Simulated scan of single mutants.
Amino acid sequence: MHDVAIIGVGLHPFGRFEGKTAMEMGVDAITAAIADAGIAWNDIQFGVGGSWTVANPDAIVGMVGLSGIPFTNVFNACATAASATKACADGIRLGEYDIGIAVGLDKHPRGAFTEDPALVGMPSWYAENGQYLTTQFFGMKANRYLHDHGISHRTLAKVVNKNLRNGALNPNAFRRKPMDEDTILNSPMLNYPLTQYMFCSPDEGAAAVVMCRADLAHRYTDKPVFVRAVEVRTRKYGAYEVNTTFAPVEEDVAPTVYAARAAFEKAGIEPSEVDVIQLQDTDAGAEIIHMAEAGFCADGDQEKLISEGATEIGGTMPVNTDGGLLANGEPIGASGLRQLHEIVRQLRGEAGERQIPGDPKVGFAQLYGAPGTAGTTILTT
């Protein structure tokens, strides 16, 4: 068994890019990652790729170079990138390869998941009336959680406000304009208690990560970042998730709880040791809920932590320093690899204006894909 290191990361900006395909964005991300690693494409021994909109991301090898490498396509909803990361890391960890790449890419149409009938098979008025299943579920879940744990509606706005401020410091983010809390609260209500600006936007982008055997990393970089754990878990019967089977919702916890516990146990690290955190903030309520599910606080403590600035870039537990999904949007296949790109930059001290203070050594990333798949990754210097 080999330890695994990340030696290169690459990102195509997230947003809207008319006339550019998801595959072309993926090529840009791969090119940036291999340049960051200081290697050539021919040094890559295998690849893993994931996408929602591209059925065969393996075809990207025809665009970057037909070198004959094995390439595996993966898909796991919003946890696609965690699955790609795990498959790539495991191929190296188990000794089958010395160096590989994970890439994620997507190009979602405007209104994806809510208004595009061709994509979701529903008429546009479902979105206009706030009746789309996933967003409706997110609203119901957030409403119940806030009610049960005494968290205010304004705390949701504080999450969005923080992430958009962080996004303004990120040249690769989709939304780069800060927004005050009242504007967020007073924007159109989509699925109570979530207003328009409390949801992320499906968009376009790509990200890639180059990994190698840790004992070889010094050949390529003097700042390796080590993959300590990647864990993926699905929900159990009774968990309160989208499309849940019939059972009392108190019967079991969400899959993020199991994925996070497994990752911390494998890495031999406690949540209190994490310096920088990336959480799936598909909506503002999700970031709040995942703070507790991942083990960073108790249920209900989020109100005080967020109010006191704990989750800010300069706080004690910085969350979504690059703006998260709320600022970057979510091209599904690329989203989780964007999280790793940000953590690697933070751990290297290369995050520019959004660099957290001190000498960060541990990063944590979490993904949640409906109808109930969670992925967690722990990186260290």
Rank of each mutant, 00 (worst) to 15 (best):
M23V: 12
Y192V: 11
E330Y: 12
D28Q: 15
T321H: 09
D275M: 08
N172A: 12
A29E: 04
T114E: 11
Y126L: 06
Y126F: 14
P171M: 12
K158I: 05
G8T: 00
K158N: 08
Y237Q: 07
S83R: 12
G167C: 06
M140L: 13
A259E: 06
A284K: 04
D299K: 13
D180W: 10
A286V: 07
A102E: 08
M291W: 05
T380P: 10
T53S: 15
V4H: 05
Y197F: 11
G130A: 00
G65T: 03
P331R: 00
T135Q: 12
I6V: 15
T311D: 09
A254Y: 04
I30F: 05
A254K: 14
I7C: 07
P360G: 00
G91V: 05
Y126S: 08
G95L: 04
G323Y: 09
E204F: 04
K361W: 06
T234L: 13
E265V: 12
A168D: 09
I184Y: 02
S187W: 02
A259C: 02
P13I: 06
S307T: 14
G300T: 08
G62I: 09
D43L: 00
S335L: 10
F226D: 08
G323C: 10
N243M: 14
V61K: 15
Q355R: 03
I39H: 01
N243L: 15
Q302H: 10
P271D: 03
V232K: 10
E353R: 13
T80A: 01
T234M: 11
A294G: 13
V160P: 06
D180M: 12
L337R: 02
